[in-house]
Design a binder for these strands. Sequence first.
DNA 1: TGTACATCAGTGAACGCGCGTTCACTGATGTAC
DNA 2: TGTACATCAGTGAACGCGCGTTCACTGATGTAC
Lengths: 199, 199
Amino acid sequence: MKKSKVETAETKRRIIAMASQEFQRNGIHATGLADVMAAAGLTHGGFYRHFQSKDQLVAEACAARLETFAEAMEAAGSKKGGLGDLRAIIERYLTMDERDGRTDGCPLAGLGSELARADPDTRSTASAGFMRLIDAVAARIRRRSSKVARSDAMFALVAMIGAVTMSRVVTDPKVARSILEETEDHILRACGPAAKSTD
Amino acid sequence: MKKSKVETAETKRRIIAMASQEFQRNGIHATGLADVMAAAGLTHGGFYRHFQSKDQLVAEACAARLETFAEAMEAAGSKKGGLGDLRAIIERYLTMDERDGRTDGCPLAGLGSELARADPDTRSTASAGFMRLIDAVAARIRRRSSKVARSDAMFALVAMIGAVTMSRVVTDPKVARSILEETEDHILRACGPAAKSTD
DNA sequence: TGTACATCAGTGAACGCGCGTTCACTGATGTAC
DNA sequence: TGTACATCAGTGAACGCGCGTTCACTGATGTAC
């Protein structure tokens, strides 16, 4: 039962989408290829018509999710017009919906320590996504130089990634919420329009 | 070959120490019990004389490493006398040695996304360790109220955890170093003695 | 203090299971004539 | 346009492997007398 090129591409896209969802929910190591293929409505045997290895799927799923997530961030930050709103981006990231997996979450927070041990391809992909997110955030920070804005954006991102991760580690939802809220306050104070700065 | 109580306790301590090391290096999922037992100089069969399950080992190893790491932080922050030095604590955390596993690393950064999916016991243990680290950092931050100091300390910690995690994801060591250095600058600016604050 | 016995830390083989990967096969599709 | 054939996406069984866990066994220890 050969499929048309369009169908084949659509199937591959669906496998990647399901993989990215399962990895985000259960982690990379804990997600089996059979789980992913079943979620895509296929049997596991067909996997190798589309990918050379699980590692390749991990890299492509990571890239796809970073793409989706970066678009969501850029959209959230552009709603209010002008240079865009830093607060809107941060509020989209630091929510209980993000913590509890009710949004298309950030793979850097969801898979951070697993990505740190992933193969070079996946880490390169994740690095590129990180840089793109930095640019998206930096575009909403007004500073004398773009270098300073990028530095502030990088800091805001690592703080958000750490905050979402720790909000998930912590068992008490109230503590989780306060981690997210306090982080938001601190980032806005450090990087918002009125922040003191070295520029 | 029954062992004395002292020997048994020492063996268990050694298993936990080796486990904490292997988990930190390779991740929880990727570390097998046989690896841990071999590192402790034992065969895998004896594992269940000391633990009920791998989950229990994970919880105890996490607790042990957090204890060690918190002590190292407290010691680093106390060297220079007085209330202690925030900068010394941050400098101990945000180093390439920490990134590359040449120190007794922080399990919150090393295992973050895996801990977020761990069983409740392990997450409770990790939460308690996180709170202890917050206290250690807060003790080096001068603010009008201890509540504000704790809030600043929490923020400094999530930023450091995110920074170390991302410094490991990123493939280029120069980028990794700059993430660590810029994060240090930003935290000192946000939480250091001269920081503007809401208190 | 000396003897007999119960305890139990540690060994190493074995358990069932799920993993990533391979493969012979099927049959609808795209292609060549 | 119609026919014959090569392609290849997807199936489902099978592969070797390592996992967490169990278990019968060993033998040095602690304990009871």
